[in-house]
């Protein structure tokens, strides 16, 4: 395993990448127009805010109030910022499907444009953390995997588990797995502290440190299984189960055959 990072350069991967690339070209134009945006002019922005307002009034105001003032079942949204809206709505947590102990990640209800409009609307009423730009999120350039691992184990592993697979909190709450979470959502979670999660602002965890953490998470996500099936990367519980079921189970099966009389 001289070069684990060389995994991406493996022969078998190249054709696969080509196919993905060809597939991608067709869709790139749409995505590109959305992500590499020109700075919006004032009228476009106010139109976006207006669209966001309409979505908010229809989909959110029942719980969060007509003026973001909140209610008995939902927090006020004054000053939560665009980052918070992008995280909550973009990961499908909002709007809530069922009111259980914890609001879970699911397929988002609104598309990217609608989420952006909602975020713009909420941010227009009171300032708050903004959505990080692509430039801010260049973790491949600005992050360090090893340092990120150190930071992750200090600040994140206690809830999200050593391999970012998630873990239990009290009373049925849990820290979700970070596998497959988009980079900007991780960043937004860090700066806004959704649900049980504490806030890691730029003073206590600098932007570079955040990118390092993200780089480590992405490395863990992409890491192939080095020693066989991963068993969920949850530690010895799965190993113990496997040893009784498969290990001892197989040996008992052999022992039964071994001690039976041949016909």
């Amino acid at each position: 395993m001289r070069h684990i990072s060389g995994y991406r350069n493996h022969k078998g991967v190249a054709p696969l990448l080509l196919v993905i690339a060809l597939f991608g070209i067709g869709t790139t134009f749409n995505v590109a127009s959305a992500s590499i945006k020109e700075p919006m002019n004032a009228s476009a922005r106010s139109a976006q805010i207006e669209e966001g307002k309409q979505i908010f009034l229809k989909g959110c105001s029942t719980c969060h109030g007509l003026n973001l003032e909140g209610s008995a079942i939902a927090p006020a949204l004054m000053g939560v910022g665009a980052a918070s809206v992008d995280f909550q709505v973009g990961t499908g947590r909002m709007p809530v499907a069922d009111m259980s102990v914890q609001i879970a990640r699911k397929d988002p209800v609104y598309n990217e444009e609608e989420v952006a409009a909602l975020a713009a609307y909420v941010a227009s009423l009171a300032p708050g953390p903004a959505i990080p730009t692509a430039e801010q999120l260049n973790y491949e350039r600005d992050g360090s995997t090893a340092e990120g691992g150190e930071l992750f184990r200090n600040n994140c592993a206690m809830c999200h588990n050593f391999a970012a697979q998630g873990g239990a909190l009290t009373q049925g709450k849990y820290a979700p797995t970070l596998m497959g979470v988009q980079v900007h959502h991780i960043y937004e979670a860090l700066i806004t502290g959704p649900q049980s999660m504490p806030v890691f602002n730029d003073k206590t965890l600098t932007p570079e440190e955040k990118l390092s953490v993200i780089k480590w998470i992405k490395a863990a996500e992409a890491e192939p299984n080095l020693g066989g099936a991963s068993l969920g990367r949850t530690g010895p519980v799965a190993e113990g189960l496997l040893v009784w079921v498969l290990g001892l189970g197989a040996l008992i099966a052999v022992a039964v055959w071994l001690t039976s009389r041949a016909r």
Binding site: G149, E150, N161, F162, G167, G228, G235, G240
Partner: peptide, 27 residues
């Protein structure tokens, strides 16, 4: 050969100030 056990590289080195969720002993 087929199942990973105790992937120590994922756990990281020990320092008393750190911890992982779901820390378990062997069965």
């Amino acid at each position: 050969a087929v199942a990973s056990i105790n992937p120590i590289w994922l756990y990281g080195p020990y320092t008393p100030g750190q911890i992982s969720a779901g820390s378990q002993p062997d069965w």
